[in-house]
Design a protein around this nucleic acid. Structure first.
Lengths: 202, 202
DNA sequence: GTCTATATACAGATAGAC
DNA sequence: GTCTATCTGTATATAGAC
C-alpha cells in the first residue's frame, strides 16, 4: 500500500471537517495542510487545485451517504426506514447546531457560485430525494411519492438550518417528532400492504 | 437632505444585493463600491469596517421584514395571514432559485463564524418565528403554537434551500401547496372562533 | 466630505532543490 | 515523492492630497 493514498486520504478528511466547520471559501489550503499534517506545497502534488479538493470531499460525502442509505435499507419495511432517517443521533445534532448540515451548507454556498462543484453538491441532496421517494413508492404512493419526499427532505434541511441558526439541538428533536407523527398518519392504513389503501389515505 | 445619507443608502442597497448574490465573505468592498458607484476609498468614510456594512444590511433586512409583517397583518384573520406568507411571488422565487433565501443564506454562512453579525442574522429568523407563533396563538393553539411555528418556518427555509439547490422555483410552489393544506386542516374547526375547537384539532 | 494611491496581509498556486 | 521558498493576485484597510 503506497503512502501516496495515505496523505491523500488525510487531506480529504481534513478538508471535509474544515469545510463543514468554516465553509468552502473560508477554508484555506494552509488550514487543510496543517490539519492533515502535510506541508502546504505538498498539497499540490495530490490535488491540482482547491476545487479538486472540494470535489474529492463531495465524493467522500457521497460515499458516506450511500453507506448511510445501505444501513437504512436494512430495516425490513419502508416506514421504519423513513423513521430511522429521522432518528438523529446526539452527536450529529451537536455538530449540526455548531456548523449546520454539511450537505445543505455546501449546496447553499456553492449554489451561489455555480460551476460543476455546485452540481456535485446538489447531487447529494438529489440522492436523498430519490431514496426517500423510492420509500414512499414502495409504501404504495404513486403520484404523491415525489411530493412526500420533497416534504421530508425540505423539512429536514429546514430544521437543520434552524438548529444551526439558534444553536439548539432540541429544535431538531422537536420537529422530528412532528415529522414522525406525519409519517405515522400517512402510513396508518398502509401496513396491510395494498396500494389501494395508500391511494385512499393520500 | 444631505448627500451623506444618499451615498450611504446606495452602499447599503448595493451590499444587500451583492451579499444575497455572492454571500457575505465572497462580496468584496470593491464590488460594493463599484455597484454603488462610490470610489473604494470613500467607503470607509461611511463604514468603519466590512462588518459594519454587514450590520447595516441586516438592519435593512430587518426593516423590510417588519414592513412585510405589517402587510401580512392587514389580513383580517390569522389563517389568511399565514396563507399570505405562503404566497410566494414569481419574482421572489426566481431570485430564490438563483441565490437562495437572503436571510437563510446569511444565517447559514455567518452562523459558522459566530460573532455579533451571526446573532443579528439569527434575529431575523427569530422574528419570523415569533410572528408565526403569534398567529397560531391567536388561532387558539397554546402549547402547540411554538411547534407549529417551528414547523412552518423550518418548512419554508427548507424548501428555499431545495429551490436554490435545484434552481427550480416550482419546487417551492409544490411544497407551498402541501403547507397550505396543512394549514387548512389545522384551522378547519377553528373558523367559528372558540379556543376549545383549536385545542381539539391539535 | 471626497477620492487616489498605497500599506499590509494573506490567499491560491508554482519553481525547483532534495 | 517531498518540502522550502516564493510568485502573483487580491482582499481589507489606511494615509493623506484635494
Amino acid at each position: 500500500m503506497p503512502r501516496k493514498t495515505d496523505k491523500r486520504i488525510r487531506l480529504i478528511e481534513a478538508a471535509k471537517v474544515l469545510i463543514h466547520q468554516k465553509g468552502f471559501n473560508q477554508t484555506t489550503l494552509a488550514d487543510i495542510a496543517q490539519e492533515a499534517d502535510v506541508p502546504l506545497g505538498n498539497v499540490y502534488y495530490y490535488f491540482k487545485t482547491k476545487e479538486a479538493i472540494g470535489e474529492a470531499v463531495i465524493e467522500k460525502r457521497a460515499a458516506e451517504y450511500a453507506e448511510f442509505f445501505a444501513k437504512l435499507d436494512e430495516n425490513s419495511d419502508p416506514k421504519s426506514r423513513l423513521l430511522s432517517l429521522l432518528q438523529f443521533s446526539v452527536e450529529d445534532l451537536e455538530l449540526t447546531a455548531r456548523y449546520g448540515c454539511p450537505v445543505g451548507g455546501l449546496c447553499q454556498e456553492l449554489g451561489k457560485q455555480g460551476g460543476s462543484l455546485a452540481d456535485q453538491a446538489a447531487k447529494l441532496l438529489h440522492d436523498l430525494l430519490v431514496w426517500s421517494e423510492s420509500q414512499f413508492r414502495t409504501l404504495g404512493f404513486n403520484e404523491k411519492a415525489a411530493d412526500f419526499a420533497l416534504n421530508l427532505v425540505s423539512n429536514i434541511q429546514g430544521i437543520y438550518l434552524l438548529t444551526h441558526t439558534f444553536k439548539d439541538p432540541k429544535l431538531a428533536t422537536r420537529q422530528a417528532k412532528l415529522l414522525q407523527e406525519w409519517l405515522e398518519k400517512l402510513t396508518a392504513g398502509v401496513q396491510r400492504g395494498t396500494k389501494q389503501v395508500a391511494a385512499e389515505v393520500a
